[in-house]
Design a binder for these strands. Structure first.
Length: 719
DNA sequence: GTAATGTGTTTTTTT
DNA sequence: AACACATTAC
């Protein structure tokens, strides 16, 4: 296959770049994923590079899968299998599993998620005798997290601490880290930091990986943090074949430690770097691109650049001013139905918002309207209660020292073991130098406990022992299936019998299926590998592009995706830009980039909505439309304003409620377009006067020619 | 030791 | 509005 035929000149330059550092500045929709896939395929096919000598870092697992598939398609066959491709976290996890023992990381380490981490922080505060009111756990946790993003260690952080709070955080961090280590656990940041430490302290390991990876490619480079930066530069240090791709305008993870300087200063890091700029957009209409550009150009300190496209002008951007959140949701649902009845596919439509909480109203409206939808994110699959409960048992079998999991497993199903018993156990275990699980098996320990408690403990220890045996020989999926029964968890849910409980059983079955799939795709059947994999699943990894439904998700999750029709909802001051971002240095710029990312997801049609009142924590408050909306030139937009309920039924169209029925959101029709009117039937547009809200179209129907006010006439595009 | 009730808090965004 | 956490009652 000719890998270059379908590429434009700069894309081709990037693909055939012989070696040495390469920076690809790729604007939204400029085909960067394609270029990366083609470059890898080219290296393999034309340069004869062995796939296992390539390391590619993507932002999500989903992107990793897609990349692998694209490369396979380009080359024909499953060529990309031996190539390492995944997120920073997944790749570091793999390295640590293989080589972590050298720095004392057990290969079956568990990964603590946000909730687990919070518990450890609170334990640490407790141990230090710090009052949670004076030292909020959330604040302590985030201070530690930010420091880790910058690849600091406790000692250096403590040394440079300037405030009282920072000194406190340093002490908490110290205990936090000791606790994690004692439990054989790592948090997300540790995956990177421990890998860096491994590479630093064991030059032989560093050299092995450096030697192996002749090419290192990194996608979404604008969203890498300091630790990730160091990782890339360490691994590419030998061959110097680092290819990084990114767009400073799409940097939206600063709050997570992402440092846009990584991309802006790549040329300083590598003075001999080749820079390729991809400025042609293949995704969006001229109108959408112009609107997006109008917004982003308000940001200072950006690489000045302007995307262009040879695509059509397309239709204007719709701006809808809703009465409130519910009205906004009704508008969205009505517009979706309009488009699907005109032949659009549900999977081509996305509804985006700033915060997860905003998904509720559109969800309800979709439900009412019978529109199938999927929500990406909000409650993550593996963070569901039932999943975490079962995982707690499994984690214990892999890692007996995991106290967070022990506490969790002991609590559900209820076994009559509470804090009192647990503390007695812990005290005895410490005294005798046993691990907790070990103490549970000692007769002399059990004897000292009340009879009922002792029997419950025995039973629990037996369950863990059975599962541990199973985990030693069986693949993860079978261990999980067994755990559902052995722990009594499934019985508990069945007895409960509520719809919710049955849903939970469903989720647990799904977990078994997921395990089977992961076993197949990774070829690593063990429970430890599965658990580590599971902890690294991102929200957007659950997005099913092939499902026949509308997609609801946050602006963050939407990065890297595209849809013919995109709604961006809640464009109000305080929401987008978010109020919490406004008092952070540079926060507004990042909100604007987020908005830009949202706009540039749209291929054909972009609909922006905001509400006049918005419920915050249950109580309604007046909302002002987002400054980002004001930044879009009116020439590019069509505005629709909701009519308040009290004006309903005056004069016209008294059918039903909701904006879809009472006031027709304005569509635009070109002269010649075939249209359908509910009363007059099919016709053809012969003239358009004015535009937007006040437009009047003249339509020739089979019987008569009519002049119709677009905002009131029940007129649609005919399919 | 558990279930029920009450209170306060929360929302940015996520690997 | 929804949820986590604490207190209270059993």
């Amino acid at each position: 296959m000719d890998l270059l035929a379908s590429l434009n000149p700069p894309q081709r330059d990037a693909v055939i770049h012989p070696g040495g550092p390469l920076l690809i500045l790729a604007g939204a929709g400029s085909g960067k994923t394609r270029v990366l896939a083609h470059r890898v395929a080219y290296l393999i096919q034309e340069r004869g590079l062995a796939p296992q000598r390539i390391l590619a870092v993507t932002f999500t697992n989903k992107a990793a899968h897609e990349m692998r598939e694209r490369i396979d398609t380009l080359l024909g066959g499953r060529v990309a299998r031996p190539m390492w491709i995944g997120t920073f976290h997944a790749i570091c996890s793999r390295i640590l599993r293989a080589d972590g023992e050298a720095i004392g990381v057990p290969s079956a380490f568990v990964i603590y998620d946000e909730e687990d981490q919070r518990k450890v922080v609170r334990d640490a505060l407790d141990e230090l005798g710090f009052d949670e009111r004076r030292y909020p756990p959330a604040l302590m946790h985030s201070m530690i997290g930010r420091a880790k993003d910058e690849a600091l260690d406790v000692a250096r952080y403590a040394a440079r601490a300037t405030s009282f709070m920072e000194e406190a955080a340093a002490r908490v961090w110290q205990v936090y880290q000791r606790v994690l280590r004692a439990r054989g656990a790592l948090d997300f940041d540790d995956l990177l930091l421990e890998t860096l430490r491994l590479l630093d302290e064991h030059p032989d390991v560093l050299h092995r990986y450096q030697e192996r990876f002749e090419h290192v490619l990194v996608d979404e480079y604008q969203d890498t943090n300091r630790a990730q930066y160091l990782f890339v530069h360490a691994l590419a240090g030998r061959h110097r074949n680092a290819t990084v791709v990114g767009d400073d305008d799409q940097s939206i993870y600063r709050w997570r430690g992402a440092d846009v300087r990584n991309i802006l200063e790549f040329e300083r890091d590598y003075p001999d770097a080749t820079v390729v700029t991809l400025a042609q957009n293949y995704r969006s209409t001229k109108t959408i691109l112009a609107a997006a550009h109008a917004v982003i150009q308000h940001n200072p300190h950006r690489h000045p650049k302007q995307l262009w496209t040879s695509n059509a002008d397309g239709v204007p951007v719709t701006i809808y001013e809703a009465l409130d959140g519910a009205d906004e949701a009704r508008f969205v649902a009505a517009e979706i139905q309009k488009r699907t009845s005109a032949g659009a596919r549900l999977r081509d439509i996305a509804v985006l918002y700033r915060t997860n909480a905003q998904s509720r109203l559109p969800e309800e409206e979709c439900l009412k309207a019978g529109i199938p939808y999927q929500v990406v994110g909000s409650v993550r699959f593996y963070e569901r209660q039932e999943i975490k409960d079962i995982l707690a048992y499994l984690r214990l079998t892999v890692n007996p020292g995991d106290l967070v999991s022990l506490r969790r497993a002991l609590a559900t199903p209820r076994r009559g073991i509470g804090d009192v018993t647990l503390q007695r156990l812990a005290a005895q275990a410490e005294e005798a130098g046993y691990a907790m699980l070990e103490a549970m098996r000692r007769p002399q320990v059990l004897e000292s406990l009340p009879r009922t408690a002792a029997r419950a403990i025995e039973e629990f220890a037996a369950i863990i022992a059975t599962l541990t045996d199973a985990a030693a020989t069986l693949p993860a999926s079978q261990v999980i299936a067994q755990a559902l029964v052995t722990t009594g968890y499934q019985t508990m849910l069945q007895d409960e019998g509520t719809e919710e409980a049955l849903g939970r059983i469903e989720n647990l079955r799904e977990l078994v299926t997921v395990a089977q799939e992961v076993e197949e795709s990774t070829g690593e059947p063990g429970l430890a590998a599965f658990l580590q994999h599971l902890a690294l699943v991102a929200d957007v990894d659950t997005y099913r592009g092939d499902a026949d439904c509308v997609t609801l998700m946050t602006l963050h999750s939407a990065k890297g995706l595209e849809f013919p029709v995109v709604f961006v909802t809640g464009l109000e001051e305080g929401l987008c830009p978010h109020i919490r971002a406004l008092d952070e240095e540079g926060g507004l710029d990042e909100e604007r980039r987020l908005c830009y990312v949202g706009f540039t997801r749209a291929k054909a049609e972009l609909l922006l909505t905001h509400a006049r009142t918005r419920s915050i924590f249950g109580s309604p408050s007046v909302a002002v439309s987002s400054r980002f909306l004001e930044e879009i030139p009116q020439a590019l937009t069509t505005s629709v304003v909701a009519r308040p309920a009290w004006a309903e039924g005056v004069g016209s169209l008294g059918r039903g409620s909701g904006p879809g029925a009472q006031r027709r959101p304005v569509q635009t029709f070109a002269v010649g377009a075939r249209v359908r009117h509910t009363k007059f039937g099919d016709g053809q547009v012969v003239e358009v006067e004015g535009e937007g809200d006040g437009a009047i179209v003249t339509v020739r129907f089979s019987g008569a020619v009519k002049r119709l006010a677009l905002c009131y006439a029940p007129l649609e595009v005919a399919e």
